[in-house]
């Protein structure tokens, strides 16, 4: 019960924030906002029922910093690959067994890998994640492991070994 209340409170705060940005801080359409926020809340409960995930803000900050730093680094590398006369591509597909428990954590992992240049998740099965890399000479394993740690910290999840 407390879990449901807490989830409702956090999510409605989040949706109110998004709505507030969307209407650029105007207040004259508050009733439309009220309906939209309620609908968003109901939809979110259907798609992602209240669960044991506890969000850590410091974990989120660490994740963001890591994310932007490596996406910049990798983006420059891929852009350079595209521009230079000899692209020198060595693509390959790797199979990685995620240490994160199934569910939201793994979905975030697959999406983060997609946004980090040089790697692309091509399939997520119940036990494995398949990652396509542009340069097989660089180890993707270590990178995925450190993203996993950041996500585990952010959602306060336990990593399996």
């Amino acid at each position: 019960m407390i879990l449901i209340l807490r989830t409702t409170l956090w999510r409605s705060m989040f949706f109110t924030g998004v709505w507030w940005i969307l209407i650029q801080g105007k207040t004259d359409t508050w009733f439309v906002g009220l309906i939209s926020i309620s609908l968003a809340l109901v939809t979110s409960f259907i798609l992602l029922p209240p669960n044991q995930y506890r969000f850590s803000f410091s974990g989120f900050a660490h994740f963001l910093i890591y994310f932007f730093a490596s996406s910049l680094k990798g983006g420059i590398a891929v852009a350079w690959m595209a521009i230079r006369p000899n692209p020198d591509l060595h693509p390959n597909i790797y199979k990685i067994t995620p240490r994160l428990p199934e569910g939201l954590g793994r979905v975030i992992l697959a999406n983060t890998i997609n946004l980090l240049p040089g790697s692309l998740s091509v399939e997520l099965t119940s036990s494995n994640l398949y990652v396509h890399v542009l340069d097989e000479r660089q180890s993707i394993e270590t990178e995925v492991r450190s993203i996993e740690e950041k996500i585990a910290h952010m959602l306060r999840l336990e990593l399996k070994n």
Partner: peptide, 15 residues
Amino acid sequence: DVYTRLQALAKVDNL
């Protein structure tokens, strides 16, 4: 191929 092109588009363009 399509995978490498996806990488170019999804990442570099996002940056």
